[in-house]
Nucleic acid binder design. Structure first.
Lengths: 213, 213, 213, 213
DNA sequence: GATGAATGAGAATTCATTCAT
DNA sequence: TATGAATGAATTCTCATTCAT
């Protein structure tokens, strides 16, 4: 039905292109809508409306808003996890391990602010963070990396689970404050977080904080 | 009919009492349902169903699930904020400031696990945290306390905003891991978090971590 | 029931006064609300809200909004019907009969515009006119008066039913246009309607019309 | 599959056809229900129930009962306005203008009694008339036609606004009485109304009125 | 695959009315 | 009588999902 005569050069496969495009169109629309309305308030209808596509078409690609969200998340995690892992793998010192982790995270967040906000969003009242399998895998990976680093003697024997939690908590929470500042300075954020984990409060850089909103 | 026994302290009007009870009944039901289904998936209907009250009665007290949630949050914040503030106010050293904050928080969380779970919940996929004015005020209070501690010379001059963020991130994230452990040990959690903020990773207690779920 | 004990000076009977007042308070509130929202959109709640009284109190006086409306209407009809009837009864000529009817009606409408509008209301889209028994009785009275006037030879033998309809239609419709004019001139309206019924179009006063809204 | 038989005129898309049908189905149901219950008492549910369609389908076509009502009104006005205007345009005398207007109106009302009743209905208590833009446009058209007829010298200079009001009032009010009579005789009604406007009461046909309900 | 109208379950909300105080 | 919270049926409206085209 949609077959083009085989003799014609076939402009790169209309079908395939559209198929991939539609998936991306939906994901893009979802990002916008989640960022606007927040995850909880967003409906599949809202996503479809932000799309030139028909309602039924959505279901050729995803089965629910959860699935779209997960796909979004997974895309992100897939993009950042290898970088984080690589950074830690090549760390020769604790400081490299820690600073590499934070720097990579903050730089990613700054470069993809839209996505980060869609995920960890501040409406006036609500924050949503969806921990998809990919995200959770990222946490496990961090813990595994920590455990390996302990095993290899790079880190002293400590509570890898709590340390992972602390790193994650600081990373997300500082990222958020960072984005609210005039010039989101990833270097400052990295220095701060790294210093905290390296030497505690007394090691923190002596600077004048900027006031956020 | 309206005569009160002179001995008994006038029961403040049955009407009034019932009214206060109903408010609490709804809040309690909301806590359960939020903890069960997660905030996003909960509907006003669900809350009403978890109540002996009629549908319309809900709307005599709250206008939406958001409002119930906020009321819950505010109750919690109101309960814990004074304790936190007091703890920090009487701190003579940085360590007292930090450990007092974490201990108070972890002990509260452990004692009011249900509430905490209703708010910072992990379904398979979603975390919700609603920052009501009261909660945000709690954050501001922490920052203000930090700034004051800097001004008074207790703390060195540092980025109070980021430090606040780090404390909040670590507190929530570790609290969550703590609750998943067999025996939620607030002392361990406090010691860990305090050590991290006092001396960084190298100061962390050398223990064997327990595996979480 | 309304009897005051002749012996005691009794400060005008607090109870009775309140009772009558409440009825009027409700009627007054209803007038306002009907005029604001239109009859159809008004709910009993709306009326109560426009009152300092409690919800239950409403039901001591009326059983529904219909009843309030009817009471309003009846009050009006009761106020105007005797005047109309009297006017027609003393008519010695057809012209006196007709002009007396219209003048009385237009003057009443002008003097009690608020009530008239509450009854025959123009929202953007809706006109409501409720023909309560009292109002219908007014129509019957007009027809009866016409029939009597025919019987007595004042009017020729004609279709009293249609003539009544024509008078009512012209009265209400012109009253409405009259109220929209800058200076609602009852004399002009009366002269116009009377002339129409006395001699038809060719007898109408030659004036320049004012443009309505 | 999508092939159309070359001989048959393409059925304009079954989808499209059904869509138009559903709109009509809803309008038809609304007419019945309004006529039965009166506009005020009718709910959207009532309309849906009078339909084989699902609840949600209603909202694909209209957003409220008001919108259905307006659509009904507009349909009617659209159907009758051109006829009225044409009738008046070709009038050579005042009598033709007046009688043409009334005859067209009464004949339409008699032929579309259901619609008229849905709009100008007498329950025991309530009359509703909704003046949609289309209806108001019909009034303005009548006034404009009158003004033009005055300008052209057909009519003497008179208050076109009041005359319009009088015509409208008489038309609606007599139509209603007409429909209540055993044999709704449009000719009688036309003759009566025309005579009234041509020569006033004394010109009215001398007949014995029939008693209404 | 794409379309978009239909579906109908169910969520949010309102309302008239009751009744204990 | 006045009060006003409780009631729960009824109503409006939305939504995810299906399916004929």
């Amino acid at each position: 039905m949609d077959l083009t005569t085989p003799t014609a050069p076939r402009p790169a496969g209309k079908r395939e292109r559209t198929k991939q495009q539609n998936r991306q169109v939906i994901l893009q629309a979802a990002r916008q809508v989640f960022a606007e309305l927040g995850y909880g308030a967003t409906t599949v209808r809202d996503i479809i409306r932000a799309t030139p596509l028909a309602a039924g078409t959505f279901y050729n690609y995803f089965n629910s808003k959860e699935e779209v969200f997960q796909a979004m998340q997974d895309e992100i995690a897939l993009r950042i996890r290898p970088r984080l892992h690589e950074e830690r793998a090549k760390a020769k010192t604790i400081e490299e391990f820690i600073s590499g982790t934070f720097r990579t995270f903050f730089e990613y967040v700054a470069s993809d602010e839209a996505n980060f906000h869609a995920i960890r969003r501040n409406t006036d009242t609500l924050r949503v963070r969806m921990d998809t399998p990919e995200i959770l895998a990222g946490f496990h990976e961090l813990r595994a990396d920590l455990e390996e680093a302990i095993a290899s003697g790079l880190f002293p024997p400590l509570d890898a689970d709590y340390l992972m939690a602390a790193i994650v908590g600081v990373a997300f929470e500082i990222a958020e404050r960072m984005l609210r500042r005039e010039r989101a300075c990833t270097e400052d954020a990295t220095r701060f977080a790294t210093a905290l984990f390296m030497g505690g409060i007394k090691a923190l850089p002596a600077i004048t904080p900027e006031a956020p909103a």
